[in-house]
């Protein structure tokens, strides 16, 4: 049997929104502490009490690769990881706009595109994450779907009681 390629996988039911991963990424890649330069992004929903890590998947279809006019963004056929060839990049920022996870960023101080490279197979963010919400390995789609279902269920539940509350109020 063929080994599945390793990827960054996330489990948002475990994520606490601590953003240690963002700090670890910027510390490793930039030698600085600046989440704005991290190659991944935690989106915190304080109103829902939920935190969603966004990492470079990569996607089944990688729009960042498709959109790049000068073929600077490419995909490794084996690992399926997308990576940027900085020398070719013309800074058109199309990839940043099209990334489904919003993890391609523009470093405005040094004017360059920054993007996750899986730390060459040893991802700092996954090692730093205290809860196991980010892991590195081959993904099993089924577990991800299972968790997704749980979250949807919980959101529906909130909606249901919110609606019930509203109707109570109108009575």
């Amino acid at each position: 049997m063929l080994d599945l390629p390793a990827q960054l996988t996330v489990d948002y039911t475990k994520c606490t929104g601590c953003r240690i991963c963002e700090l670890a990424c910027s510390a490793k890649k930039e030698g600085l502490f600046n989440p704005a330069l991290a190659r991944l992004k935690i989106v915190r929903y304080d109103d829902l009490g939920m935190d969603i890590p966004n990492v470079c998947g990569p996607c089944d279809e990688a729009p960042c690769v498709d959109i790049c006019p000068v073929y600077a963004m490419r995909r490794d056929p084996l690992s399926r990881m997308t990576y940027l060839d900085e020398d070719k990049c013309i800074l058109c920022k199309s990839c940043a706009g099209v990334c489904v996870n919003g993890v391609i960023k523009l470093d405005t101080s040094r004017m360059r595109i920054i993007k996750c490279d899986h730390c060459g197979g040893d991802p700092e963010c996954a090692k730093a994450c205290p809860t196991g919400a980010i892991q590195y390995g081959s993904i099993s789609q089924s577990t991800i779907r299972g968790r997704h279902g749980k979250m949807i269920h919980y959101l529906k539940e909130i909606e249901r009681t919110a609606l019930a509350e509203q109707t109570d109020g109108e009575k």
Partner: peptide, 20 residues
């Protein structure tokens, strides 16, 4: 229903709760 943390905290003592 979920555990959360402040910035940079690997302990994460914050709890989100919901009354059914």
């Amino acid at each position: 229903i979920s555990d959360r943390a402040c910035f940079g905290c690997s302990l994460g003592c914050k709890k989100v709760n919901y009354v059914r």
